[in-house]
Write a protein that binds this DNA or RNA. Structure first.
Lengths: 413, 413
DNA sequence: GGCTTTTGTTCACGGCAAGAGCATAAGCTG
DNA sequence: CAGCTTATGCTCTTGCCGTGAACAAAAGCC
């Protein structure tokens, strides 16, 4: 994790507050205070002051550590009952899912809804749901993250070729175009990669490649825990390089894109079914389960492209998510047979591992959460929180007379 | 520039020393002390103490600012006459060049020598030259950087397919395998990109692509001023993805590599000349100057690949160095005609600029310098320098009775 | 019940940057 | 050329922060 350095003694404190909260968040609120103190190389006294301050700001709340231990019992810092909450949604081609998350990463699903693929039907009801939860959460809401299956231009204009979305203004259609609460729209592949880097198989990996196979194929480079975003936010498009051997025109406007050969659309096309509307998830899964030939063709194209990416970027590991997991399981032979000959000779001694995602289809949603916390767990983010929470009740949290809102509220499914 | 953050008050000082030296180095020792103070947001008092400390450690030396100015005259901090020096070499397929560089980036060429392409003839004499200068410089030498035209595995094993180098142990053949002075072997493309990011067209660019065309074609992603290195140091190989349309087998072991279609080897092959030994620089330049057809074919393949990389990574700018500069000048039409149709539709509104390198053929050498200073301009690097320079003469540098070694010494060409 | 072990708390200390006040050295003005 | 203006360097006080040692607390162990 890269954090901007402090340069004055005042920024030191702010910087260490961020480090401590980040450590709590990244470990899922499982580490004890004494562990964190050692890990961050703080003096015990410093840790005392920091934790006390963060508890006073309703950012942390300590609970006794479970289990027997030798010396004086230590505490486990975790989310405060009135602490920060992120909302996040994963908008897929045929449905969306909305969830909330508190510090430490505990997720509560708030709703799931199918839609017809039009921007209006996909985004309108979601915007209303988000607004409702935002009212309920009040200042506890630190931001809203949204994952989408297409390139996202500066500010939230989205294109999804195979759905016919052209420059769809996502913040406007959600009704969240104003700054409060802060809205972060991101590409599903990049966000899945982010989640994998924080809580999955890319944890601690310096250089990794993440490939997300849904209807389309997305791919992105992950460096030191962050997905490389591109200059205007529309990176994560490894699928639109000509790596698969196809020469077919792609709805993106180019030709020969790798994404034409891998994914649900490619599976459907391979068996002569209609495709391209994001409406065939069930059929695609049937093809995946029954058509050896279609699966082999997909896996071969996948392997060929992986070899090219490994040559170019020299990753430690390549992670597959979405249908990529099944392709790897069902046709490992074809995948490796296509990958091997495409590698440079020097890569063959220690080829990178090709692994399945640890988070499965949940990756994009979790990544949208993490992107909200990434913006919050900064000196600026915490300063803003303090400003919005003037003179906290200075509670000892056993004083539970103040009713606090639960994450799920009344609208949980 | 990303610098690790300070977490204790002691590290604060070290961190600010690094920031100040880095600022002096990056601007080429042209900024005045008052400018630096403002830029780094330091108090004037703090700057005083920092500069005094660095001058005492023989890291900085102030000279009066030239030109008329309104108030009290300010000073320009620059390299100290007994300050740190980096050595760097660029080993090309047919010759090498050795140079020295002090803080601020002033370069002194120390030697140029052709070689026959064998590891022994290329590396032996270079090692001797480096050792001689190392003796002369003594503790002023902070490191040696070497740029090479091939992938460099952990520790310095180098493969250059078209020269027949297989797992060549560069540090051993240079006779510099021991830790003193620290030796950094790097890929020429990655280092050229680094130089471009620090002193060329990629300055201040968040996401850029650098392509270096020599005999072979190298390419690398540049993020926030650093070239993405790969897990084992062998990234920077965009040339070994199948982006150019070829299906020919590549000496690297794969097939269809982009590097088969672009570069001096490709030019020579196109007109039916021998190629592959790195021995035809003059002929290649003649082909480049005379054969419209060969140039067009190269430029077309280059443009096609650039489009793919732009789709995948969404860079602000694509920089061409080496022969890429001439290809862009001589066949801009073919290049753009091949690039355009390969772009995703959403990239066509604001396609990235395609520009020529600002540093030309010097990029790799300069990048090797920068890589040495990157290791030096850290809290650890400066701490080590202080240890090796115990109790400096506390000089006011007008006391020039102590003869100090010049950069060029007696062996300058 | 007393001893050991580990952790939380408190406090004096030293290091650091900030910022105000003063000193300095130029340009500018008449 | 003398006095004024302007910008910068230097010094010293102030306040903040992390450190580490001493002490208190709370559990396990014998």
């Amino acid at each position: 994790m890269i954090v901007n350095g402090a340069t004055t003694s005042g920024e030191l404190r702010a910087h260490n507050r961020v480090r401590l909260l980040r450590a709590v968040h990244d470990c899922g609120a499982t580490r004890t205070r004494s562990q964190l103190t050692r890990e961050l190389k703080l003096a015990r006294g410093t840790a005392s002051v920091l934790v006390a301050g963060l508890a006073e700001d309703a950012l942390l709340h300590e609970e006794p550590a479970p289990g027997p231990a030798r010396g004086r019992p230590t505490q486990v810092p975790g989310p405060h009952p009135r602490g920060p909450v992120a909302l996040a949604a994963d908008i897929r081609e045929d449905a969306w899912e909305l969830a909330a998350c508190e510090l430490g990463g505990r997720v509560t699903v708030l709703g799931v809804r199918p839609h017809d693929g039009t921007p209006q039907d996909a985004l309108g009801p979601l915007g209303e749901a988000v607004a409702g939860h935002a009212r309920r959460l009040g200042p506890r809401l630190i931001g809203v993250g949204v994952a989408l299956a297409g390139p996202i231009r500066h500010g939230g204009l989205v294109d999804i070729g195979h759905l016919g979305w052209r420059s769809v203004d996502v913040p406007a259609l959600l009704g969240l175009a104003d700054a409060e609460p802060p809205l972060a729209v991101g590409n599903d592949t990049a966000l899945a990669a982010l989640a994998e880097a924080r809580r999955g198989r890319l944890r601690g990996v310096r250089v990794g490649v993440h490939l997300h196979v849904d209807f389309d194929l997305g791919g992105v480079l992950v460096l030191d825990g962050r997905a490389v975003p591109g200059a205007s936010g529309t990176g994560a498009e490894f699928g639109h390089m000509p790596l698969g051997g196809s020469t077919r025109r792609c709805p993106c406007g180019a030709a020969g894109c790798w994404a034409m050969d891998v994914g649900a659309n490619a599976l459907l096309r391979h068996v002569g079914l209609a495709y391209g509307g994001g409406r065939g998830r069930a059929q695609a899964e049937r093809v995946l389960a029954t058509s050896e030939e279609a699966v082999t063709a997909n896996a071969t194209a996948l392997g060929r492209g992986i070899a090219a990416l490994v040559n170019a970027h020299d990753p430690e590991v390549v992670i597959l998510s979405g249908h990529g997991v099944e392709l790897r399981e069902r046709a490992a032979g074809a995948l490796m047979a296509a990958c091997g000959p495409g590698l440079m000779a020097i890569r063959r001694d220690h080829p990178p591992r090709i692994e399945a995602s640890a988070l499965g289809w949940r990756g994009s949603l979790l990544g949208a959460m993490e992107s909200v916390f990434d913006a919050f767990l900064t000196t600026e983010g915490l300063e803003l929180w303090r400003k919005n929470h003037p003179d906290q009740a200075r509670d000892t949290p056993d004083r539970q007379s103040v009713m606090h809102s639960t994450l799920a509220g009344e609208s949980a499914p």
